[in-house]
């Protein structure tokens, strides 16, 4: 086995666009689930809206890349309002069902051949990079060292991704350290008590849904920046993977989602490299290399179960501040 290559790939995944995208999505989900106690099971839908909004903005409306990104964010805010207004007055499990259903409806709408000209149906969207690449201030060439050696385009994606992530972290951290965040956490604990104290619970929940949704959509955009938008990505499994990353780090923390996403992707990369290599080297004679790739997803599922059962507060969470809506 080529351990050097495996280590290098894993180290490289620390700032891969996928990791940054997951970190943003998980942070958005932390606002929903960890801080506000909203059971959003449709985070994949928010990411899809961001990604498609960005790509459609460029390809169909001919917007420059930054305006298209803005379009993706605004669209996700509208999506959050449409989901939230009817369901946030209902019991929590209804929100879970409505969000997972809405995300799936959205995916089917992106997938159907009826809108092929706009959405590209099963092929997805690609070839929208011109405006984004033209805006790149970094001169052509390869930069970096060791495992982190990328071309100027790849650096531009990563830099913007990191900027977006830092902005999101500062926003969430500020919000949660403020009286606004205090009300939100109160709502997570018992919304009737907070309502009895004169707070507009519905308004807070709706705002939280929008804020988290916009951050998750930013994750979708970062995911779409370097390559293409593929409807096969935004399935319910994506939502579950983001939950895994979030719970790994700690649901009601600001840095937990980031650390969780990082661990999630580094482990994915390690397993994705080690398992097939082990098969090729004959260490796992009962397995094909395709099966070895599947195995890592089985392990994700098992890991999710183990975290929730044995360390529900995540790696960074405080045991006492363990946060699961009742």
């Amino acid at each position: 086995m080529d351990w050097i290559q495996i280590l290098s790939n894993s180290a490289s995944s620390i700032i891969s666009p996928a990791t940054l995208a997951y970190a943003l999505a998980a942070l958005g989900l932390a606002v929903h689930f960890g801080f506000a106690g909203l059971l959003n099971m449709g985070i994949a839908g928010f990411m899809a809206i961001g990604a498609y909004g960005y790509a459609i903005g460029i390809l169909t409306f001919g917007l420059p890349w930054w305006a298209a990104a803005l379009l993706g964010l605004v669209a996700s805010a509208v999506f959050a309002l449409i989901l939230g207004i009817p369901t946030l007055r209902l019991r929590g499990d209804y929100l879970a069902i409505v969000t997972i259903a809405a995300a799936e409806v959205l995916r089917l709408l992106f997938l159907t051949t009826a809108f092929d000209k706009v959405t590209g149906s099963a092929d997805g969207l690609f070839g929208y990079h011109a405006s984004f690449r033209a805006s790149n201030p970094i001169p052509e060439g390869t930069y970096g060292f060791g495992p982190w050696e990328y071309r100027e385009v790849d650096w531009w994606v990563r830099i913007l991704g990191i900027i977006a992530l830092i902005l999101a972290i500062i926003t969430v951290w500020r919000l949660m350290a403020s009286p606004w965040g205090r009300v939100l956490k109160g709502i997570r604990e018992d919304e009737e008590a907070v309502r009895a104290l004169g707070k507009n619970v519905f308004g807070y929940k709706l705002t939280a849904l929008v804020v988290g949704g916009v951050i998750a959509a930013a994750g979708g955009i970062v995911y779409a920046l370097p390559s293409s938008v593929n409807p096969g990505v935004y399935v319910t499994s994506l939502t579950f993977f983001v939950y895994t990353a979030l719970l790994l780090g700690g649901a009601a923390t600001v840095f937990g989602p980031v650390i969780g996403s990082l661990i999630f992707w580094v482990l994915q990369t390690v397993l994705g490299n080690v398992l097939p290599a082990a098969v090729q080297a004959g260490y796992l004679p009962f397995m094909t290399s395709i099966q070895a790739q599947t195995l890592k997803f089985i392990l994700v599922g098992i890991a999710l179960m183990l975290i929730v059962i044995f360390r529900p507060q995540g790696i960074l969470g405080n045991k006492k501040e363990l946060t699961f809506v009742k």
Partner: peptide
Amino acid sequence: GIVQLMIVSIGLSLAARYTFQY
């Protein structure tokens, strides 16, 4: 808690789903 149970079932669903694929 029921939310924890629900997420455990999500983990189980993922694990089972990919076991079938395996």
